[in-house]
Amino acid sequence: MAQLNRHNVREGLQRFGPVKLRIEVAKLAKRVAELEDEVQECRRDQHRLAELTDIVQELLVPLSRRDQAAVDEVLAKYTEQLG
């Protein structure tokens, strides 16, 4: 077995350093792709939240007034006007 000394440590680093670096870069690239996916997932919630808030807000007032005729009217108009 070779003796561990400054010379063969440097040689080992030169031989294996680039491999380690490549592994590190590959890991980071994978992490960046994961983060991109996560960012996109978060962004997509904006649309869903807007849709939910929109219909809830339109319905809340007649619902809180327990005004069934107004609820029916809001629902009918809401669905008729969807484009």
């Binding site: 849709e51 939910l52 219909i55 609820v71 029916d72 009918a76 809401y78 669905t79 969807l82």
Partner: peptide, 21 residues
């Protein structure tokens, strides 16, 4: 006949509630 887009949640919620009622 009417327009309903299954890819828009508000269409689905609006029509779902309307039909349910």
């Amino acid at each position: 006949f009417a327009m309903l887009n299954l890819l828009e949640l508000r269409h689905v919620l609006g029509w779902g509630a309307r039909l349910a009622h």
